[in-house]
Design a protein around this nucleic acid. Sequence first.
DNA 1: TAATTTCCTACTACATTAGTAGCATATTAC
DNA 2: GTAATATGCTACTAATGTAGTAGGAAATTA
Lengths: 148, 148
Amino acid sequence: MKISKKCQYALKAILEIARRNTSQAVKTHDIACSQRISQRFTEIILNELKHGGFVESRRGNEGGYLLARDHKTLTVREVIEYIQGDISVAPEALKDNGDASLFGDEAFKKLWQEVNNSVSEVCASKTFADLIDFENTKREKCVPNYNI
Amino acid sequence: MKISKKCQYALKAILEIARRNTSQAVKTHDIACSQRISQRFTEIILNELKHGGFVESRRGNEGGYLLARDHKTLTVREVIEYIQGDISVAPEALKDNGDASLFGDEAFKKLWQEVNNSVSEVCASKTFADLIDFENTKREKCVPNYNI
DNA sequence: TAATTTCCTACTACATTAGTAGCATATTAC
DNA sequence: GTAATATGCTACTAATGTAGTAGGAAATTA
């Protein structure tokens, strides 16, 4: 029933690139500092995200990462499913047991499906643009005199 | 994002006791066989469930376990929360970080809360009576010529 | 060519999960 | 009372997953 730290870092990293909204590549170092993630771990995660087609990389000096997807349509769900794998709460319980089925198998199968669907729905309804909007609104409203 | 095997076994064990709907205590051996759980592990789980007030035990010959709660009002959620602990998908992200908050913290906090709420709702809406009804209906409808 | 930055494999420490094993203790049928 | 059955308790273990570290190769650009 957990979203792993790595997965949460992946979401944070994408959010950080998206919020900067620049054509300049964002360095892992900047992402790591802004979101308090270890530099090395950030590299690993961004590399994975690249293979998943979420970001693209620029090597060399002034290199870094750019979003490969539009943050207005990229949903939280896609990232979670890629990094964490199957989002299902009870993957093995959903398999068909055939003749070896026990009393309750069908009922539990339906229950876990309902849970999965509801989680999926929530995560699929949130884009990174939504997250950024929410965060900005919250910060304006609640900490109007917060200076950096 | 997983419901542990142990937790699933706990739900199965309660379902098995509830479906028998008898004033006779159900032996761990019978529960273990019916639901294909190791005898020893079943004992451990039932003991935990007893401490949680879900079942009560009878010792000695003809001993075993009985439901301590009405299966019409006992929900899946209560059992999951007791056995697996906090149902939250990202417990540490929900804590208040105070001044150390990063961009996105509030947005993610809200996201995880929404996920938690939807999972909670689904699990709180299912009682063991519901599960038994569903299973019985399913079995009547789909395998009418299934003989044991 | 030097500096910067990504890219890639391998290794490790720790926590959790899913059990096992052995024996002590309680209860009841006979 | 005693035999049979069942719970109660502690401790141990194997496998898996999580959260990183470490070292260096390769690419790019000023």
